[in-house]
Design a protein around this nucleic acid. Structure first.
Lengths: 336, 336
DNA sequence: ATTGACATCCAAAACGTTTTGGATTATTGT
DNA sequence: ACAATAATCCAAAACGTTTTGGATGTCAAT
């Protein structure tokens, strides 16, 4: 049976109030009394009932994250982000509450449920959409949150990597290697970074003096399988591209597998590049050229920012935009 | 301001009790009254306060997992397991409470904290140790839990893959390819599966008519870096092994990197094999031979079992031991 | 007319903490 | 001696649900 303040009060001869004050560090308890009560609490193995505590004090020491349900295996982006957030939460003595939901209405319901029910003190939001309803809800609910990413409005705390600049760098890198036919695999258009990265693709082409071809822009859904399918479509064109850039590493890796299935050599026949620098990028065959966003570290920084927002402490910079870093690996190939 | 039953009671003209009964589906509320109350609750955006509900009903609809703090990036094993557990929890309308802790006493404290404070309904335990103090605590606390793995006692619900049989299969596979000098990279000895997999290694050698060499058994800590270091030590022996088997895929991948750094060819010069079949195994360069344990699916099965244990429903089989499946890939090489 | 069963509603207790607003005693200053 | 202050303790309220144990009115059987 769980030990309560009442049990300690009975055992110690003091009231529940005195016991609570002794264990909580109030200044109005005699030191000898306090030590006496602490010894009894430790002996009985007392742990405060957090539901009772949360009900009365309205704090949960819990951070919420709603992550998308995956089909077979985990989305490496979310797992990396989760690791960073989880690690930093531990530094502050916070736990993570995870809710896995189908994207869309079920995800929004989960936000309503765990926020409105005072289950968590703050939220980390990722994979921002244009006019993201989650962000709309959190602002209306005036609930502390921090976003990994940014969108059209941006009147909220966020950390992001400059995707536009990153993709632009990749396109220029491939152009410098002599590529003239550079294709692009888009993420879903409702995701905010799709626009940013697409703009980077257009800017890169423009600066390289290359024209934008509609048939070279194909949509995926961030999964490896969709990158695979997109690459097959690109390779089937009458004048297929000599380089493929994808909005994320998973689709880029899928594209590489498709290229290899067509008995082509990644790098030599078709150069490939992605975005994120998930661990699988370095381990891919061949290793993938990408733009590095330090997802784990961003997770940690997002959590730091969120704790400050929760505590109503001043935050030096509520809008952090990190400079992307181009990581050139074998999948770029050489000069053509 | 959060909407409570009191607000709905005031608005509807019924008591808090009637409102609670109407929203909770009690049979003693007139149907017209119920619909009237539900309409008001939806209009006001009511969400029950879960701290209050948990305090009174002593149920949280939350599963707990304590995961080890990682250094830089996520442990692929735990992330895969987390995905499986999280997905299945969502099917039952449960959330996951994660606490990231340093292994050892801090981890045990986290178990005490989240279990004794009635924060969760059940726990999934992984990476079982010999005489695992977490399992001892959970049994004493009579708190529902399920284990991915097994240990010496095993008087608790578990799901495991037969590691002994799996490693034995790998050793026989390598022996059949002509290998006579097969080394083994151990996981930490306090982990329960270390003994089982080591026994499989010994059995495989024995059945192949090969003798056990002490210098061919080196210890790692499940990380890629430790596999890398272990492989360097093995390669530096006067008579280095022609095959290296590791207790998990991460160490095996680390071993492959070390082999490649020594300008040797994995498969041709040194065969390598691991255990787990994490996604990186298939994507490694070369793709890694391994024993497949379907971590994601086990996560889902573990959660199914746990929900039944929580609900005091009968479980067909409280001890599930899955047959391992050898996945032969390029890292085995050919006949030598 | 009376009694028993049923439907539909409700007040207060309970859960286990924290907070509020004290009471009582001892000490210090005038 | 008395008043003011400080130290140390405590009862009850509060938080927001669910549960317990009813009250009241209606209907059917006798």
């Amino acid at each position: 049976m769980k030990v309560t303040l009442k049990d300690i009060a009975r055992e110690s001869g003091y009231s529940i109030t005195t016991v609570s004050h002794a264990l909580s560090g109030y200044g109005d308890v005699n030191e000898n009394t306090r030590q006496h009560i602490i010894a009894i609490a430790e002996r009985l193995g007392y742990q405060p009932n957090l539901a009772a505590r949360h009900l009365r004090s309205k704090q949960t020491k819990t951070i919420g994250m709603v992550i998308p349900l995956t089909t077979y295996y985990s989305d490496p982006f979310f797992m990396e982000l989760l690791s960073g957030v989880g690690r930093q939460a531990a530094e502050y003595g916070y736990d993570l509450l995870l809710s896995a939901q189908q994207p869309g209405e079920e995800e929004l319901s989960a936000y309503r449920r765990i926020v409105a029910s005072s289950r968590i003190d703050g939220v980390v939001v990722a994979r921002v959409q244009r006019d993201d309803p989650r962000i709309t809800f959190l602002k209306e609910a005036r609930h502390p949150f921090v976003v990994f990413g940014r969108s059209n409005a941006n009147d909220y705390p966020y950390i992001d990597v400059d995707g536009r600049a990153g993709i632009r760098q990749i396109v220029l890198h491939l152009a410098r290697l002599g590529h003239r036919r550079i294709a692009f695999i888009l993420s879903p258009p409702q995701l905010a970074f799709t626009t940013l990265r697409y703009e980077g693709y257009c800017q890169g082409l423009d600066e390289a003096g290359l024209s934008l071809r509609d048939d070279y822009v194909v949509e995926g859904d961030l999964t490896r399988a969709s990158g695979h399918a997109a690459a097959l479509r690109l390779l089937a064109l009458p004048e297929p591209p000599t380089a493929i850039v994808a909005c994320n590493d998973s689709m880029a890796i899928g594209a590489m597998l498709a290229i290899q299935e067509r008995k082509l050599v990644v790098g030599r026949d078709v150069a490939v590049a992605g975005f994120d620098d998930i661990p699988a990028a370095a381990n891919a065959s061949p290793p993938l050229t990408t733009v590095r966003q330090p997802i784990y570290d961003i997770g940690r920084q997002a959590l730091d920012m969120l704790i400050r927002v929760i505590r109503n402490e001043p935050v030096e910079n509520l809008h952090v935009l990190l400079v992307p870093e181009l990581i050139v690996r074998a999948s770029s190939g050489g000069m053509i």
